[in-house]
Structure formats: structure tokens, C-alpha cells
């Protein structure tokens, strides 16, 4: 019998005869219950990506990380040990599974050419090369080595860079190196707006 089956209690002996006479089927009645769906999932500790409360979440993925298994997220639940959320989650955190598995996720680089009214698929290599070319051209064109007062400023006002508040500290640090290298002065993030 499957683990999910739940056994009804056998009928008491009294009255069984009568029931038989009336044609009752006295085979064990069973209730089929939903399986406990996360009994063997793989648990990964993470942090909710939405607000700054930083609720601990546990991501349940299908499979045991074996070589031949591709994990997919079947459930996300609060981390009961996390001191701040203690297992609780708001409606957004409670539905993180549907963010991770969202059918609307982007899965290929696209480009919209000047004047065009549609996206075109593009390979990663072509996209990176195209972007790098734009960045270089703009920087070469707009680079200000010295300002109007003759002070060395080494900046590239032709380019602006925003974002990072939804990504890791490490990403943000790399991003700072990126803008420092390119001399981007126009830099902002959600910290301001």
C-alpha cells in the first residue's frame, strides 16, 4: 500500500451481519490523501529577493543533485530558523516559486535595431560584441580627460549606468569596478528613487 493511503477504521463487529444482509461492501474503506510533496526534495537556503527585510527562504528542488537529475523548483517556503522572518513570508515571498518558474522569463538575448519595430534574436557572442563596440565608440567620442578648467577628470559622460539594488554585494562591487574602469560619472540606483 502506498504511503499516502490512509486507512479507515474497520467497522465494529456489531451489526456486521445486518450490513452484509443488506449487501454492504465491507472491504476496507480508504482515503487517498495528497502526498507530502517535499519529503525528499533538496533544500537550499536563500534570501528573498524582494524587500530589505531579508526573509530567509528554503528553496525546494526536485531531485537529489545526482548527476543525472536536473533540478527544478517545486516549492519555496520560509526558513523557520531565520531570526527575522522565522519561517513567515509575505504574499510575494510565498509565491517565489512562480517567479523562478515564470513562463515569461527571458531566455535569449535580443536586439532591436534602430528604427525597427521588433526584436531580433541574437547570439550571446554577437550581443556582447555589439555592446562592447557601442561602449568603446561612445567612450572614445565622449571621453573628457580635462574639464573646461583644465583639471584632469578622466570621465565618460557619454554613458550612464543604473541598477544593482536587486543583485548581490559582489555584483555591485564588480559593477563599481566596471564604471570606474570606463569612467562613467552618471551612476545611480534604486537607492535614490
Amino acid at each position: 500500500m502506498g504511503l499516502t493511503r490512509r486507512t479507515f477504521v474497520k467497522a465494529g463487529t456489531a451489526g456486521v451481519g445486518g450490513a452484509v444482509a443488506l449487501g454492504f461492501d465491507l472491504k476496507e474503506a480508504r482515503a487517498e490523501m495528497r502526498a507530502f510533496k517535499i519529503s525528499r526534495t533538496t533544500e537550499t537556503r536563500s534570501t528573498c529577493p524582494y524587500c530589505a527585510v531579508s526573509c530567509g527562504v528554503i528553496i525546494h528542488t526536485l531531485g537529489d543533485k545526482a548527476k543525472n537529475a536536473t533540478p527544478s523548483v517545486v516549492h519555496v517556503e520560509g526558513d523557520p530558523d531565520h531570526p527575522i522572518n522565522r519561517g513567515t513570508l509575505c504574499p510575494k515571498g510565498s509565491t517565489l516559486r512562480d517567479d523562478i518558474n515564470n513562463p515569461n522569463r527571458l531566455t535569449s538575448p535580443k536586439v532591436r535595431r534602430p528604427g525597427s519595430d521588433k526584436w531580433e534574436d541574437i547570439s550571446w557572442d554577437a550581443a556582447i560584441a555589439g555592446i562592447a563596440k557601442h561602449i568603446k565608440e561612445t567612450r572614445d567620442k565622449c571621453f573628457v580627460e580635462k574639464n573646461a578648467k583644465g583639471q584632469v577628470v578622466n570621465r565618460n559622460p557619454g554613458m550612464a549606468m543604473i541598477g544593482g539594488c536587486t543583485d548581490t554585494n559582489e555584483f555591485n562591487f564588480l559593477q563599481w569596478k566596471f564604471i570606474t574602469a570606463l569612467g562613467v560619472p552618471y551612476r545611480d540606483s534604486q537607492a535614490r528613487v
Partner: peptide, 24 residues
């Protein structure tokens, strides 16, 4: 509109490690 727009598919929080700094 003469802008060339690149849209690059990134990854969600569950798909990368690293640290977040919370409000506190």
C-alpha cells in the same frame, strides 16, 4: 527612434549565490 536596444536575459536570486545586505 534610432536607439539600438539590447535585452539580455539575466538570472534570478535562486540562480546565483552571493550576499544581500538587508535594511538592518
Amino acid at each position: 527612434i534610432q536607439t539600438e536596444v539590447y535585452q539580455l536575459p539575466a538570472s534570478g536570486f535562486a540562480e546565483k549565490d552571493g550576499t544581500f545586505t538587508n535594511s538592518a
